[in-house]
Amino acid sequence: MSVPNFPPPRDIDLTNPFWEATDQGELRLPACSVCGAFQWYPVPGFACHPEATRHWREVAHTGTVFTFSKVERAFLPFGSEPPYTLILVALDDVDNARLVTVLVGDDQDSVAIGSRVELSPTVFETHTLPTFRLSA
């Protein structure tokens, strides 16, 4: 099993704070600066508070697997060596947000919908990927 190494774009204000945070070992998602409601994925404006700015709030490092797939062929133009296991994680303290990520660890074949997972980052030269592992 591998972890794709495909550097994210780093020059886009709408998305880069996510990667700035992962470089620090944190997980942050964008939220309304007025009411704190998460907006994931970000879009240019906030319907709840038009005057709001985008505030990147820290979120839990744990969650539950909503669904998963073992990817057995490469679709990225470079940087992926299948197989790898993708998971969609419902984070513990965030409504209406799911994190796309990669499962790491020797026990990943035992993943199931509903499995508990926790942050276990994979550090590359260009970026830190917030990968997850199955919780004990």
């Binding site: 794709p4 994210p8 709408l14 797939s69 679709f75 796309v100």
Partner: peptide, 22 residues
């Protein structure tokens, strides 16, 4: 932009991958 930033770096890419998850 959001798929390029929040999905492609994880290898969540290619329509077969999305639909496999579903």
């Amino acid at each position: 932009p959001v798929k390029a930033a929040f999905e492609m770096p994880f290898g969540w890419y290619g329509q077969p991958v999305y639909f496999a998850m579903w």
